[in-house]
Amino acid sequence: MTREVIGMAFILVGIMFDFFGVLGLVRLPDVYNRLQAATKCVTFGSAGILLGVFIIQGFNNFGFKALLGIVFIFLTSPVAAHAIARAAHRSGIPLTKETVVDQYQEDNELKD
């Protein structure tokens, strides 16, 4: 009983952070800022949901799958964000107007 309450609390917190991540995708101005919201909130949110599943299920193969899911989210989500951000910058998608500095652009221009 208590285990289910704790698990449900984790799932609730996870859904809340996933919601913040989606809100960030809608509200923030350009692709780079949106990636920030997408990677950070979604790691904590999805990891929270999976941890809740693990707490409810306990140490059987279903729970282990949830734990392994957390590990893979932590490993893959930053790599995906890096790939998308790099590809966006290389194909010339501009940063938002509020941007103060772009040292990546400066260095690439020096090389050309």
């Binding site: 913040f20 919201a37 909130c41 652009q105």
Partner: peptide, 16 residues
């Protein structure tokens, strides 16, 4: 990030 997203004025100053 949650604070930035729910802040009404979006307090960001982005750059690379």
């Amino acid at each position: 990030v949650a604070f930035i997203v729910i802040h009404p004025y979006l307090p960001i100053k982005p750059g690379i």
